[in-house]
Design a protein around this nucleic acid. Sequence first.
DNA 1: TAGAGCACTTAATGTAGATTAAGAAAGAAG
DNA 2: CTTCTTTCTTAATCTACATTAAGTGCTCTA
Lengths: 191, 191
Amino acid sequence: MAQILENISKIVTLSPEEELLFLSKIETKHYKAKTVILSAGEVCKDSYFVNSGLLRSFTINDNIVEHVLSFACEGWWIGDMYSLLSQKPGNLFIEVLEDAEVVLLSKENQEELYHLIPKLERFFRIIVENSLVAYQERLMDNLSLSAEERFDKFCKKYPTLIQKVPQKQIASFIGVTPEFFSKMKSRLLRK
Amino acid sequence: MAQILENISKIVTLSPEEELLFLSKIETKHYKAKTVILSAGEVCKDSYFVNSGLLRSFTINDNIVEHVLSFACEGWWIGDMYSLLSQKPGNLFIEVLEDAEVVLLSKENQEELYHLIPKLERFFRIIVENSLVAYQERLMDNLSLSAEERFDKFCKKYPTLIQKVPQKQIASFIGVTPEFFSKMKSRLLRK
DNA sequence: TAGAGCACTTAATGTAGATTAAGAAAGAAG
DNA sequence: CTTCTTTCTTAATCTACATTAAGTGCTCTA
């Protein structure tokens, strides 16, 4: 319930009144697995915080190939940053992989909160900074590591995801086809 | 001189006093081409804003292969975000490609300014948000586009860089070897 | 309990891009 | 101007990974 407050408190300290104010600006929703809560072509209106369950964001190329941009489980934020910032139609789908409880923070409320509680501007700055570092590293990994090394890093970084996520989506996340991933995996197991 | 203030004013409005305060916290330096202003293994102490000239950040793999993470010309920020945030030794080199005038903002001063001028927290939040969107797009491009398509996007996005930057570094930026880049380029010219 | 659909595997074949190696061209430095 | 170094090109060969295709085994639904 106050999961998101706990998450925020790891970075900035809100007063009880500020916490109440914050809670008044968010909305909690429950989604079944396989629900698509945002589609490519739509404008992203909200930031999503995952209380429980599992989501992913991805694009679809030429109506065929999916590419997973990110997973989000308990305690993570997800959204279509490009669309959210520009308020233009985005390229991302956001889909529920496991039944989820999600906190929605609308763009307007978020902007309003920046004024009402400047500490939240700090909070989101830091969240975004950390996210930027992670994407920079992932990009460099894609430029410099082999598929096997990227898989290895993935396993170490997200050990819990490996059981939960269909393996073809892990393949997509690290940037290989499901067929090659399968071959690579069995090759690794033989060692 | 007040180039950086102009840059800031595109996003937030500072009062004259705030501008003076800001100026008192920064330092301007001149570097010759080929200067390495940050090396892998060092802790990054500053954010760099480019007044003039051209810089790049890159890693080196196994003491051999370079991978360009970013270029920064007039009006751009550059740094080793990972190292700057964590204050741990980083993996990036930052090198001057063309004689440059660079504004240095130390981490301490930056943090201090967040408290003194909260609007600057907004400024940097927005800068980092935009940067995140760009890296997310670049990652997805690397997962889904061919080298030729990535080169095409690069040309459209950074037309001025093509003349300035040695072509092997463009190759590295888009994620191919210089040899393949050369072949690809002559193939494109023949059309 | 059948059968429709996914997720995963295996294997043959194809290819984008890497590697290696050499030479040409163009700067920089003395 | 000459030499040294670095960048760029070309070409042969190689390989990591993609593509295509077929088959296996889930699990969900009816």
